[in-house]
Simulated assay, not measured.
Amino acid sequence: MRRSGDSEAPAGSSLTARARDGDGEAFRQLVEPHRRELQVHCYRILGSVQDAEDVLQETLLAAWRGIGGYEERASVRTWLYRIATNRCLNVLRAGARRAPGRVAYRPEVSLPEPTHRRAEPSWLEPYPDALLEEIATRVPGPEARYELRESVSLAFLTALQELPPRQRVVLVLRDVLGFRAAEAAKILETSENAVNGTLKRARATLARALPGAGRESAPLPKSPAERRVVAEFGRAFEAGDVDAIVALLTEDASLTMPPLPLEYHGPAAVRTLLSTAAMSGGRQHVLIPTRANGQPAFGCYIRDPRTPILHAHGVLVLTLAGPRITGITRFVDNALLTVFGLPRSLRD
């Protein structure tokens, strides 16, 4: 089966016919090439890896149950996107999917007053680069505005979560995936005019929320420039050297800790947080390098002075601007470590 564009290989019709006849293996071969990109699609809209996986499973189940009604008027890929998109919208309409099961995070130490407080917690989670690599070969549609790396960055996803559900979905379909207005309208069962109007409003809101165009771009992933700043940060963080960490920051750098609705803007505010909370009491950290959302990241652990055990302490993701750090995002949910293949504890 071909992977580029929205077309299906000649064998696609044969697979579809067999799937309609109840051949589970034929159905698997039909949908498997689209599984990972569908999960990333749901992740962009919902902001949660687990929620995205749940909706993906619902999508595949609905597709299996509905394969008999699939008439091949659109490609299998577009058909699956239609199912997944509308299920994501249902989740957003119903409110936070897992909110009842989410326990409010209570910091181990008191935190200094932030420079900004969000109105509500942010349930955005990081997405492992190891999974993104599985869809790196697909080329977005002809009308896409964002490359894969940009469309999964934390800055983009944070801004995306601020959009109303319908605007969020339309912008992803049109500007990230590159579906034409007519295709997006069919997916959403609406008119092209409605899609175009919604997209215009979404673009305007996103433009205000994203970092300024004048900011220096991040170095290429795994480039010498990126490795240099990441190594310097890692050494400074493990040494508890707040001055060295702050020296790596841009003047507009920020530190956030999802889901806490607290934001610390500027080197002075970040310094205060690090010195009075993260590095207080002689805490010693160990960072395990990984990657998330196309950005350098670490699994974070704290040494236990009484035992040779390193305890999980969330996931850190760095946003770079040129040779410096413009964003530090510490995801406080220790369960996220397993998504990156990291254990909840290590022996020192």
Rank of each mutant, 00 (worst) to 15 (best):
residue 9 A to D: 14
residue 15 L to D: 01
residue 19 A to G: 00
residue 21 D to F: 05
residue 24 G to P: 04
residue 28 R to V: 09
residue 30 L to V: 12
residue 31 V to D: 01
residue 33 P to R: 13
residue 37 E to P: 00
residue 37 E to G: 01
residue 40 V to R: 06
residue 48 S to F: 02
residue 51 D to V: 09
residue 52 A to V: 02
residue 55 V to M: 07
residue 55 V to Y: 07
residue 57 Q to D: 13
residue 63 A to V: 01
residue 67 I to M: 09
residue 76 V to L: 07
residue 80 L to W: 04
residue 85 T to A: 09
residue 86 N to V: 05
residue 89 L to S: 08
residue 89 L to P: 08
residue 92 L to Q: 11
residue 95 G to F: 00
residue 98 R to L: 14
residue 99 A to P: 14
residue 99 A to M: 14
residue 100 P to R: 09
residue 100 P to F: 10
residue 103 V to I: 14
residue 127 Y to G: 04
residue 127 Y to H: 07
residue 132 L to H: 08
residue 132 L to G: 15
residue 137 T to V: 15
residue 138 R to C: 04
residue 148 L to P: 03
residue 152 V to C: 09
residue 155 A to G: 12
residue 157 L to I: 06
residue 159 A to P: 02
residue 165 P to M: 02
residue 172 V to Q: 02
residue 177 L to N: 04
residue 178 G to N: 00
residue 182 A to P: 02
residue 192 E to P: 00
residue 192 E to G: 11
residue 192 E to I: 12
residue 194 A to Q: 13
residue 197 G to K: 09
residue 218 A to M: 01
residue 218 A to Y: 03
residue 219 P to L: 11
residue 222 K to M: 09
residue 223 S to H: 04
residue 224 P to T: 08
residue 226 E to Q: 15
residue 228 R to M: 10
residue 245 I to L: 10
residue 252 D to T: 14
residue 253 A to S: 10
residue 255 L to I: 08
residue 262 L to K: 13
residue 265 H to Y: 14
residue 270 V to W: 00
residue 271 R to M: 03
residue 276 T to D: 07
residue 278 A to S: 14
residue 283 R to I: 07
residue 283 R to C: 03
residue 285 H to L: 11
residue 285 H to K: 13
residue 286 V to H: 10
residue 286 V to S: 12
residue 286 V to D: 14
residue 290 T to W: 00
residue 297 A to E: 04
residue 308 P to Q: 00
residue 309 I to D: 01
residue 314 G to Q: 03
residue 317 V to F: 07
residue 318 L to A: 01
residue 323 P to L: 03
residue 323 P to T: 11
residue 324 R to I: 05
residue 331 F to D: 11
residue 332 V to Q: 10
residue 339 V to K: 12
residue 339 V to N: 15
residue 344 R to D: 15
